[in-house]
């Protein structure tokens, strides 16, 4: 298997948690993994992305080449579009539709939605709302991970185990709520595929 993912969002939104969970799952499954992330000045509310590559054979580059990503997974709709040139022809975009507006010139939502709709392979829904419904407002990233999971060749149960391992120190309740968010995200995505 080989899945190349561009994780996108805004600094502080929590995209790196997704990488941590998939990383833990990949390690357990004896897969190869490379995950490049950005620290420092760019984390302060600016656009952030992480290249996550999972494969059953060795991975050369920490960065995904243009046109090489199987998936763009984003916590924010405009941020999903930022990385289009990295997407493969057959690649999928999985994104939250709730905008994060911290700039004056944020584009009109209709334009963002239209651009997303133009794409043949998109799973987009309001993950903040789903998170609030089934877990807590802070678990939209777990809903997103759930929504992306059908596109990653990994047993969802293994990802669930990784969620339990990553959040284990925070107590049973948080683990359960995060797993619920993950499962719901997966269900919603499967409906939309």
């Amino acid at each position: 298997m080989k899945t190349d993912i561009v994780l996108a969002g805004v600094g502080g939104q929590g995209i790196l948690t997704i990488a941590t969970i998939l990383g833990a799952a990949a390690l357990k499954e004896n897969l190869f993994l490379k995950q490049a992330e950005v620290h420092g000045m760019s984390q302060r509310g600016g656009d952030v992305q992480s290249n996550l590559r999972i494969s059953s054979s060795p991975i050369h580059s920490d960065l995904i080449p243009l046109g090489g990503a199987d998936l763009i997974v984003s916590l924010e709709p405009m941020e999903a579009l930022r990385y289009l040139p990295y997407l493969k022809e057959s690649g999928w975009i999985v994104t939250n539709t709730q905008p994060f507006v911290n700039i004056d010139n944020y584009p009109e939502m209709e334009k963002v939605e239209a651009e997303l709709a133009r794409h043949p392979h998109v799973v987009a829904f309001n993950m903040d709302e789903v998170a609030k419904e089934v877990a807590t407002a802070r678990s939209s990233n777990l809903v997103l991970l759930g929504a992306a999971s059908p596109f990653i060749e990994m047993d969802p149960e293994k990802i669930t185990e990784a969620i339990a391992a990553v959040f284990g120190s925070k107590g049973e309740k948080i683990v359960e709520s995060n797993i619920a968010a993950f499962r719901e995200g997966r269900v919603r995505a499967t409906e939309k595929m």
Binding site: Q43, P85, P107
Partner: peptide, 21 residues
């Protein structure tokens, strides 16, 4: 050699500079 980009840049996207928290 690998293929390179298929999709162009989206013209909807604007830059999002970092800011103080």
């Amino acid at each position: 050699l690998s293929e390179g980009a298929i999709h162009g840049d989206s013209d909807v996207v604007v830059s999002r500079p970092p800011a103080l928290c």
